[in-house]
Design a protein around this nucleic acid. Structure first.
Length: 383
RNA sequence: GUGGCUAUAGUUCAAUGGUAGAACACUGGAUUGUGGUUCCAGACACGAGGGUUCAAUUCCCUCUAGCCACC
C-alpha cells in the first residue's frame, strides 16, 4: 500500500510511505542494484548499515544463474541472499534488449517474447511476459515490473510506436498472469506484491501519453519511466521525465528506472517521482569515484530545482591521494569509513584489493541514503 | 678463468640500414532499469665507446653488465 503523506503546493514533489511485507519505506527513496542477488562487493548487513532500505534484483540474471531451482529451494530470494528488507525485481526486459541491440546475433524480439542466447553458456531461452511474471513470483519479491520493449533512444517514431504497442500488449499479459499467479498461490489481498507497468515512447510525447493511458487502463500499483534517461551526449532528459510523471495518476507510485546522478534524482523528486534505482553509486565506486557532500546539510530542492552543486566527486586512483591521511568520510556512521584514510584506500585501489571496492561502495551508498533523506527533508519544508 | 647467448619504455618482450610497437605498470578521463576487475586518452625507451655508411637502435670491433655451459 502506498500512502501520500504530503503533496507540495508549489511543485509536484511529494512525501509518502510504501508498505511492503518486508517493511515500510519512506518515499522518495533510492534502491541500489543487486542485479545478481548481491550489491557487488558488499554483504547485506553492510548495505543496511549504509542506510539502504530496498534493493533491485534482476529477473533475467537470476533466472540464468543460479537458476530458479536453487532459489525455490532456498525459499525465495530474500532468504537466499539473506536480505531482510524490501526487494524489487526488474523484469529483464532492458537486459535482453540491450544484449540484442549490442549484438543482434544473440536473438530476436517477437510479439510472443524475447528469444535469446544466454551470454553465460550460449543456451537458448525465451522470455515471455508470462514467464517473466512467473519467475518474479518464484523470486518472492515485494515489487515486480512488467516485461517491456525498450528500444534505443534514437529510434524513429515507427520503431517507437511498435515498441509502445508491444509494451502495452505485454503489460496486459503480465497483469493477467499476475492475477493468475495470485489465485494459484492463494496470496491474500494484503500480501500481494506491487506490480509496475513501464511507460515507453522515447522522446515522443504522443506515444508516451498513449502508452501511459493504456497502462493506466489495465491498472497497476505504479508506473515506471522506460528508456535511458540521458541522450547520446549524456544530457539529462528533464522535459520528457516531467511530461511522463504528469501522465501517472497521483495516487500511484512513480518509478524512475535507472536514474541517476544525485542532481538528476533531485530534479526527478521535484517532478513527483517516488522511486529510483541506478548503477552509478556502486559501479562508479568500483571504478574509484567517491561521492562527497560539500556540507553536512546540502541545500536541496531550492527554486532552481537542485541545480546548485551540493556534492563533489573524487577519483581515489589519482596520485594526489597517495599521502592523504584524511578519513574516507569523517562524518560517516560507518566505523570503517571514519577510520580508514584516503591514502590507504588509494593503496587498496592500486593493488585491486576488494576491500577498496567495498569501502568505496559503502561510501557511495551512504552518500545516496543521505541524499534521499535530505530530499525528503527538503520536500517536507516546501509549501 | 674459457666459451656461448643477451642488452630496446618502470617491467616483460617485438620490429627495423632512413618516422621504434605491444602488454602490464604509470598519469588523467568516462560510466544513468549492471554482459563493466570495463571503456577512452596521454606520458615514457634503442647499455658505453669506436668503426663501416650519405645515413647505424640495426652491420663490425672493444668495453661493461647479466644469464647459461665448462673449468
Amino acid at each position: 500500500m502506498f500512502k501520500i503523506l504530503k503533496q507540495s503546493k508549489i511543485s509536484n514533489a511529494r512525501l509518502g510511505v510504501l508498505k511492503t511485507l518486508h517493511g515500510d519505506i519512506k518515499t522518495p527513496f533510492f534502491m541500489p542494484d543487486a542485479t545478481r542477488g548481491v550489491v557487488k562487493c558488499v554483504e547485506g548487513s553492510g548495505v543496511l548499515k549504509a542506510g539502504v532500505k530496498a534493493m533491485v534484483v534482476n529477473t533475467l540474471h537470476l533466472y540464468l544463474q543460479p537458476g530458479m531451482k536453487v532459489i525455490k529451494k532456498a525459499k525465495g530470494i530474500h532468504s537466499f541472499m539473506n536480505w531482510p528488507g524490501p526487494l524489487l525485481s526488474d523484469s529483464g526486459g532492458f537486459q535482453v534488449f540491450s544484449l540484442l541491440h549490442n549484438n543482434p546475433k544473440m536473438g530476436k524480439i517477437t510479439d510472443e517474447g524475447a528469444i535469446f542466447k544466454s551470454p553465460i553458456d550460449g543456451s537458448a531461452h525465451i522470455l515471455t511476459p508470462e514467464r517473466s511474471i512467473q519467475i518474479q513470483f518464484d523470486l518472492e519479491v515485494d515489487m515486480m515490473v512488467c516485461l517491456d520493449d525498450c528500444p534505443p533512444n534514437d529510434s524513429d517514431n515507427k520503431k517507437l510506436s511498435i515498441a509502445v504497442k508491444r509494451t502495452i500488449a505485454w503489460a496486459g499479459r503480465c497483469k493477467e498472469e499476475f492475477e493468475k499467479q495470485i489465485k494459484k498461490r492463494k496470496i491474500k489481498e494484503d500480501k500481494r506484491p506491487k506490480l509496475f507497468g513501464v511507460i515507453q515512447g522515447g522522446m515522443n510525447k504522443d506515444l508516451r501519453r498513449l502508452c501511459a493511458e493504456a497502462l493506466v487502463d489495465i491498472g497497476f500499483d505504479g508506473y515506471g519511466f522506460g528508456a535511458r534517461p540521458v541522450d547520446e551526449k549524456g544530457n539529462f532528459l528533464s522535459e520528457i521525465l516531467k511530461y511522463t510523471a504528469e501522465l501517472i495518476p497521483k495516487d500511484s507510485l512513480r518509478f524512475a528506472l535507472g536514474i541517476g546522478t544525485p542532481n538528476d534524482i533531485v530534479k526527478c523528486a521535484g517532478l513527483g517521482w517516488d522511486m529510483f534505482d541506478c548503477v552509478i553509486p556502486t559501479r562508479e565506486a568500483r571504478h574509484g569515484r567517491l561521492f562527497q557532500n560539500l556540507s553536512p546539510q546540502p541545500p536541496l530542492l531550492n527554486r532552481r530545482g537542485g541545480e546548485k552543486s551540493f556534492y563533489t566527486t573524487i577519483n581515489i586512483n589519482n596520485a594526489k591521494f597517495t599521502h592523504n591521511k584524511s578519513s574516507i568520510n569523517k562524518n560517516s556512521k560507518l566505523l570503517e569509513l571514519r577510520e580508514y584514510s584516503l591514502s590507504y584506500l588509494h593503496h587498496l585501489f592500486k593493488i585491486s584489493e576488494p576491500l577498496g571496492w567495498r569501502l568505496a561502495t559503502l561510501n557511495n551508498l551512504e552518500f545516496y541514503s543521505g541524499l534521499m533523506q535530505n530530499i525528503r527533508q527538503g520536500i517536507n519544508k516546501l509549501r
